Simulated assay, not measured.
Amino acid sequence: MNSQQSLLRRLDEIGLSLARCGDAIALFGLGSAGVERERMDQWSDLDFFAIAAPGKKARLIDQLDWLSDIRPLAFQYRNTIDGHKVMFDDGVFCEFAVFELEELPAIFYSPGQMVWSAPGITLDICQPVAQPPAPRTEKWLVGEILGNLYVGLGRYARGERLSGFRLVQVDAVNRVLELTALTGPAAAPTDRFAPERRFESRFPATAVDAFMPGYTGTPQAALAILSWLENRHGVNVAMSRQIRQWADAAEARFPGELMQTTHQS
């Protein structure tokens, strides 16, 4: 297991390595490696931006010696055009992107914390200039959830059970998380990029297990989500009635699975 101390030490080592290689001008951490370090624990990884010197972005992306010189890399792959996910041989996992200074104003990111910078580079670059997209409206989210339930139940009843599962227990639940973040008071910071992050801490009174009972429980999941929605938001009566009818029909297509799901849970 990695401790907060060892993770922060590795972050500092990455900054020193970038300074030595001469092809970078800054490194700043993001998330729990940035301004939210009180969240960092043994389960954390390291998220950061490496800021390349002019014309050196491709070199830092294509050649990872500035990381492997610290410790060997046991795993790495390029997950975006701008960066990689890597794991050192001691289990420290990193997700990073490489940008040149002139690219930053067009990118939205969470505020960061400087780890290392070359002379003349100010702390301002750790603060995003670009604004996040406007949050989806309550009306849109409620409509999208109802659509996911309706279409998902139809596919499930048709025999496309994986597709139905994803629409109801993944897509609709994702919209529920967005809706909760939009309309409910949060007890902990929200991740602008992933509303499921720290959901249990942010909304301890909201139980979502009934929304995701498993592969054979899609009709029951749909009814649970619908009931939750009806108790908190205005729901179209015709859609509510149709979803309940389709949930009954989908359950009838696969008799006995509600009992099986209940026993397994």
Rank of each mutant, 00 (worst) to 15 (best):
T218I: 03
F28E: 02
V176I: 15
G147S: 10
T183N: 06
L162V: 08
R241I: 06
L179T: 00
V235M: 09
E160C: 01
L46H: 02
P255V: 00
A221S: 11
G31F: 01
V115P: 02
I25M: 04
A224V: 09
S117P: 01
W66S: 01
L146F: 04
M114I: 01
P119W: 04
E95P: 00
V86E: 00
E102D: 07
R78L: 08
E100T: 08
D248H: 09
G234Q: 12
R253Y: 04
G184D: 13
E257T: 05
L16D: 15
P72N: 13
R155E: 14
A207C: 10
I70K: 11
Q63T: 08
A250K: 06
I225N: 03
G112E: 02
D41Q: 03
R10L: 07
A187C: 08
P54D: 13
T218K: 00
L60F: 06
F96N: 05
A58G: 03
G147V: 00
T262I: 07
D12Y: 04
Q127I: 13
W43D: 15
Q264D: 15
D124K: 14
E38L: 10
I121G: 02
M212N: 11
L229T: 07
A130Y: 02
P204Q: 13
L27S: 02
Y156L: 08
Y156W: 06
S117N: 09
F49K: 11
P185I: 11
E13R: 12
R71K: 13
R166K: 09
L162R: 01
G152D: 14
A210N: 08
A222C: 08
T261Y: 04
A53T: 04
F93T: 12
M259T: 08
Y77I: 04
S68L: 04
V151T: 15
A194E: 12
V35Y: 05
N79R: 06
V115K: 09
I225D: 01
D82H: 12
V35R: 15
A52M: 01
A222Y: 03
S3K: 07
A207V: 11
T80M: 12
G31S: 12
T137A: 12
R253I: 01
P133Y: 10
L177K: 12
L27M: 05
G234P: 03
P219R: 13
G154D: 03
A207E: 15
G22W: 02
G159R: 00
A252P: 00
G31N: 09
E36N: 15
A19Q: 14
R161D: 00
A33C: 12
V98T: 01
R198N: 09
T80Q: 11
F199C: 11
L101D: 04
F254G: 03
V237E: 14
G22S: 05
A157R: 13
R78D: 13
L7A: 13
K57Q: 14
W228G: 08
T180C: 14
F49E: 11
